[in-house]
C-alpha cells in the first residue's frame, strides 16, 4: 500500500492544498483538511468525553457532583476509590472475575486449540460441515437456549457455581475461538511439522514442540478476546450466579449500582475500578485486541 509513503507535510495539516497535484499523485489519500480533522476530533470527544467525566465524578464529593457535574473536581477525592472498593465489595468481585475469566480462558484455549488443530491439519471427515455448524452455533441467539440451560444447570448442580458459569462461557466462546484459531493455523507453514514427522517424531511431540509455539500468537489473540468477553459478560452472569460471595465484578458492580445508596461518586469510582484492568490491558496490547475482535465483524469479507 502506498500508505507507508511519507509525505513531507509541514506541521500544519490545514495547509495541505487540495489541488496540490504533486501530493495527489504521490498518494491518493491524505488530502484531508481541517474539516476532516475537526470531525474526527469531535468523535474522539464523543467517545472518550463520557469516560473522562465519569472519572472526574469519581473524584468529587457528592455535593460537588450535584452542583458542578461537568467540571473538574475542586479537590481530588482519591479516598472515594477506597470507599467504593470497600462498600461495593470490589475486591471480592475482582477476585471472582479472575477465577471465572482465568478458567474460561484456559479451558477455551484448550478446547479451541485441540479442535482448531484437528480442523486445520488432520484430514477429518465432515470437517467443513462441522465448520458450518460452528458458524451457526456462534451466531445462535443465546436467549433461545437460556431458559432450558438454566433448568438443566439447576438439576445438574451447576447453577450458582463458578464452574457452571465457566462451562457456559467455554460453550459460548469456543466456536468463534476455534474458527479464529483455525484460520490462524492455516497460515502457519507446514514444513516444520513434515520435517519432524520425517525424523520420526510422534504426533504428540509435534503438537507440543512445533505447533504450540508457532500457534502462540493466535492463542494469545483468542485468550484476549475470550477474556474480555467473559469479564464484561452480563446476561449469563446475572442469571447463573446469585450467591453474593461468588459474584463476578460485573454483577457486583451492577448490584452496587442498583442499591439503595444512590451515591454517584462511589458508583463512578467502582465503575472505574472495574474497567481499569481491561483498559490497561487493551492499551498495552491494542493491535492484537483490535485485530482479534474486529475479525468477528469481517466474517463476510
Amino acid at each position: 500500500m502506498s500508505l507507508s509513503v511519507k509525505l513531507p507535510l509541514d506541521g500544519n495539516v490545514g495547509e495541505v492544498n487540495r489541488s496540490n497535484a504533486a501530493s495527489r499523485t504521490r498518494s491518493p489519500v491524505g488530502t484531508a483538511g481541517v474539516f476532516t480533522y475537526t470531525i474526527l476530533t469531535a468523535l474522539v470527544i464523543f467517545a472518550l468525553g463520557p469516560i473522562v467525566l465519569f472519572f472526574f465524578s469519581a473524584l468529587k464529593t457528592q455535593n460537588e457532583l450535584a452542583s458542578n457535574p461537568l467540571g473538574l473536581p475542586q479537590t481530588w477525592q482519591w479516598g472515594n476509590f477506597i470507599d467504593a472498593w470497600q462498600q461495593a465489595n470490589m475486591g471480592a468481585g475482582l477476585f471472582n472475575s479472575v477465577v471465572i475469566v482465568g478458567g474460561t480462558v484456559i479451558l477455551t484455549c484448550f478446547v479451541a486449540g485441540c479442535a482448531a488443530y484437528a480442523l486445520a491439519r488432520l484430514e477429518i471427515r465432515g470437517g467443513s460441515a462441522f465448520i458450518t455448524y460452528l458458524l451457526v452455533t456462534s451466531s445462535l441467539p443465546t436467549q433461545m437456549f437460556l431458559v432450558p440451560l438454566f433448568y438443566l444447570w439447576s438439576r445438574a448442580g451447576l447453577y450458582d457455581t463458578q464452574f457452571g458459569l465457566i462451562l457456559i462461557y467455554v460453550g459460548l466462546f469456543s466456536p468463534f475461538a476455534t474458527l479464529l484459531l483455525r484460520s490462524f493455523m492455516l497460515t502457519m507453514p507446514k514444513e516444520f511439522e513434515e520435517a519432524a514427522r520425517m525424523d520420526g517424531a510422534g504426533e504428540l511431540k509435534i503438537l507440543l514442540r512445533i505447533v504450540l509455539p508457532n500457534a502462540l500468537p493466535g492463542l494469545l489473540t483468542i485468550a484476549l478476546v475470550t477474556g474480555l468477553s467473559a469479564y464484561n459478560e452480563f446476561l449469563f452472569a446475572i442469571t447463573f450466579i446469585q450467591n453474593s460471595d461468588l459474584l463476578p465484578v460485573s454483577t457486583t458492580f451492577f448490584s452496587f449500582q442498583q442499591g439503595f445508596t444512590q451515591n454517584f461518586t462511589l458508583i463512578s469510582a467502582a465503575g472505574i475500578i472495574m474497567i481499569a484492568p481491561m483498559l490497561i490491558l487493551f492499551l498495552a496490547l491494542q493491535r492484537r485486541f483490535i485485530d482479534g475482535l474486529s475479525s468477528s465483524g469481517l466474517g463476510g469479507a
Partner: peptide
C-alpha cells in the same frame, strides 16, 4: 483515532450504562 474510537467498545456494558445514567440523570 482508531484506539480512541474503540475504547467504548471494550468498556463493560454495566459500566457504560452507569456512565450514561449519571450523565443523563
Amino acid at each position: 483515532f482508531r484506539v480512541a474510537y474503540f475504547i467504548p467498545y471494550i468498556v463493560a456494558s454495566v459500566v457504560s450504562a452507569s456512565i450514561w445514567r449519571s450523565l443523563l440523570s
